[in-house]
Amino acid sequence: MSEKSKSKSETDSEHDSQLIKIRAHHLCCIQGFQGYGYSPAFVANMRAVISDLEALPSRLLKLVTECDAICISCPSKRECTIQESVLSRRIRQMDLTVLEKLKIEDGTFVKADEAFRLINSKLNNASDIEEVCGTCKWRQKCLWYMQAGR
């Protein structure tokens, strides 16, 4: 049974103990992260999120188009939370593109391992990857982006 089909009371207890909110495009970033980042605090937080997901691959994620568990330590977080900013619109568009390609809605609950399987099966050609990652300043250092000549 998918998380979307579970009743609110059934999912509330799972969310309290396991839920991590993740921007849709961060499913790519997590896989390509090499230790580079906006600041030492950002890098440490990204490593902690990745370690958590590696330790518990069945961890429940809520895929979103807003600041998430990774954005918490980003120096640009304030600008990103201003919905009218150019940065916010660009990053949100990356999330919306990922969600569209995965054929899921903003706010969908999915287990981490299932989310990674889904993104790697649905975003598997150069044009899809360029559409999502084309404006990202980290793409030249991202293992996920560079994999298979992306």
Rank of each mutant, 00 (worst) to 15 (best):
L123K: 05
K4M: 04
E100H: 12
E131F: 04
Q93R: 13
T97E: 04
G149M: 03
S73D: 11
E79Y: 01
Q31N: 11
E100P: 00
K141A: 02
E66D: 11
E84N: 07
C142L: 02
G35C: 08
E105Q: 13
I104V: 03
A148E: 11
R47A: 12
N120G: 10
K77I: 03
F42L: 09
R139D: 03
H25I: 14
T65L: 00
A115R: 08
D52C: 13
I91V: 15
Q18C: 10
R78L: 01
S51H: 08
S88V: 04
N124I: 11
E14T: 15
A44C: 02
F109D: 09
S51F: 01
M1A: 12
G32H: 08
R23P: 09
E14D: 15
V64L: 03
F33K: 09
R117C: 01
T108W: 00
R92E: 14
K6W: 12
C74E: 03
L19G: 06
N45E: 10
S9K: 11
R47W: 11
P57N: 11
F116C: 02
H15N: 08
K141E: 02
D52A: 08
G107P: 05
I30T: 13
S58Y: 08
E54D: 13
C29P: 09
S85D: 04
S2E: 09
L53A: 12
R78G: 01
S7V: 03
C136Y: 06
L61C: 11
C133I: 09
E14M: 14
F109V: 06
P75W: 00
M146F: 00
R23I: 12
T108E: 05
G134D: 05
K141D: 01
G32T: 13
K8P: 11
G37H: 11
S73I: 02
I72K: 09
S17V: 13
K77Q: 07
K137V: 08
D12P: 00
R92V: 12
F42P: 10
I82F: 02
Q147A: 09
Q18V: 05
E14Q: 14
I82C: 02
Y145N: 05
I50P: 07
R117G: 05
H26M: 11
R78C: 00
Q140A: 05
S39L: 07
L27V: 11
G107K: 03
R59P: 12
S9R: 10
H25F: 13
I129G: 01
L19N: 12
L99D: 05
L96G: 04
M94F: 08
E105K: 14
L60S: 05
D95R: 07
S88H: 12
R59T: 15
D52P: 00
Y36D: 14
E114P: 01
S88P: 04
H15E: 10
L99M: 13
C29G: 10
D16V: 12
D128Q: 15
T108G: 00
K6E: 08
R90Y: 03
A41L: 11
K103L: 02
W138C: 06
I104P: 02
S85E: 10
S58C: 07
G37M: 10
A112E: 00
E79A: 06
L123T: 06
S127L: 08
L27S: 08
T108S: 10
C136N: 06
A115E: 07
C133G: 07
